[in-house]
Every structure is written in structure tokens, then in C-alpha cells.
Write a protein that binds this DNA or RNA. Structure first.
Length: 214
DNA sequence: ACATTAAGTGATT
DNA sequence: AATCACTTAATGT
């Protein structure tokens, strides 16, 4: 399985062998649901290419974006759900065409004990996700929607690997759980600041907008 | 040409 | 920052 080589994680050879043995390679098209709220997860994904959008539903059943899982990453929420075999709190949808290795949950525990690199990998993705969520909580608490928007655009550029984003203001507003009018105003400000250009259903990030792609 | 949908803006809470 | 009300611009039929 050459796909494993493309992961930048450094797993020890024995672990790689085990992964090859038990993992199933799955490819999904954009929009396909991987897990929905209430479902129980039986395997954890190691993303080879593409990305997954992870969201939860608020009280009114509206979708609110939590984060994207990109290439070479895995989803922190699935770990916690898997451990206890509890129903998923989140919904995961393929953002674009995505291929990942599905690893059955029972190996999670076993490998944690057996392989340091696996433990480090799991802990690493949980910590970085936790820190990111902490940051967005801060931004929400201090009502810094403009910074959340910038972060959102940056993530979007990373997942699509393009500075040309095909998004309407309304979609952004839905993802950030706010109103379209607010997004339009903030985007206009960013445009005036020379960070981006606005078109209909399209946003072009300029070089002044620091994103490390290409 | 007309209807529909996306985006821009002032005023108000 | 959210909502309302309204305008303007772009796009589809």
C-alpha cells in the first residue's frame, strides 16, 4: 500500500505493517456523509487526500462548522467517541473527493500501548485540535468575528489548495453561525484593506492575505 | 425582458 | 453584532 507513504507521520515499520493489514482504503465523493449525529463509529480515518468537514447541530437543528480535517490528519472527535463506543456528537461530510484509511476501533487501544509513534500521533492531533477550539472560543467570547472569518478563509484556502474560493456570503454565514449581512460587511472591510477581492459566489485571496499554499 | 438570487448599505436595537 | 428594510448587481429562463 503505497498510499501510506504519503502520510507524513513517522510510524515504526511494525506499525506500518499492521496498518496495511487491517486498514481499508475508502474513497468518497464531495458531499457524501461519513458519519452523522447519533451514529456509532466503528473505524477511525487517516486521511490520504482531500478533506472532511466536521460540524454539529445547534438547538434549532442548524449546522455549525467545527473544523476541517485535512490530508495527513485524523479526526480528534472520532477518537473520543471510539474509546467509549458512544454515538457521534458530530457530523462528518466529505468536503471534496476524499480518500482515507479506515482503521477498526479495536486497534486504537492496542496500538496506544504498543507503539509510541501511534500514541504521539493520537495525542498530537487531540492537542492541536483542542488548542484550536480554545482559540475559537476566545474569539467568540471577545466577539472577534473578523478574526474568525479570516481563520475560516485561511482554512478554506488550505483545504481546497486554492486562493480562489467558491463561496457565497450566505454559506460563510451559515458555517460561522451568523447572518449574511454581517459577513458582507466584514468581507467588504477586508477588501478595502487590500486582503482580498470580492466577486459573486467567489472570493480571491490576495498575497497580502498570508496563507502558505502553492 | 423578467424573475430569481447574491451582495451592498443605512438605520435601528 | 444582529435585524430590518431596501437598493443594486449578476445570473438564469
Amino acid at each position: 500500500m503505497e498510499t501510506l507513504k504519503r502520510l507524513k507521520v513517522i510510524f515504526e515499520p511494525e506499525l506500518k505493517k499492521e496498518i496495511k493489514k487491517v486498514a481499508k482504503e475508502v474513497t468518497l465523493e464531495a458531499g457524501e456523509v461519513i458519519v452523522d449525529i447519533g451514529q456509532t463509529i466503528h473505524s477511525i480515518p487517516l486521511i490520504i487526500s482531500g478533506s472532511i468537514k466536521v460540524s454539529r447541530l445547534d438547538d434549532d437543528g442548524k449546522e455549525i462548522l467545527l473544523y476541517y480535517v485535512n490530508s495527513h490528519e485524523s479526526c480528534a472527535m472520532t477518537f473520543t467517541c471510539c474509546m467509549e463506543q458512544r454515538p457521534s456528537e458530530i457530523r462528518a461530510v466529505a468536503e471534496n473527493q476524499v480518500t482515507f484509511l479506515a482503521i477498526p476501533v479495536e486497534y486504537m487501544d492496542r496500538w496506544m500501548m504498543k507503539y509510541v509513534t501511534w500514541k504521539n500521533f493520537i495525542m498530537g492531533t487531540i492537542t492541536s485540535r483542542f488548542n484550536e477550539l480554545l482559540r475559537t472560543i476566545d474569539l467568540i467570547a471577545f466577539q472577534k468575528l473578523d478574526e474568525r472569518l479570516k481563520h475560516y478563509l485561511e482554512q478554506k484556502a488550505i483545504t481546497t489548495n486554492s486562493k480562489l474560493l467558491n463561496l457565497s456570503h450566505e454559506e460563510i454565514a451559515n458555517d460561522l453561525a451568523t447572518s449574511r449581512v454581517v459577513i458582507s460587511r466584514l468581507l467588504k472591510k477586508l477588501e478595502n484593506d487590500g486582503l482580498l477581492l470580492l466577486y459573486r459566489n467567489q472570493i480571491k485571496l490576495l498575497s497580502a492575505f498570508k496563507v502558505k499554499i502553492d
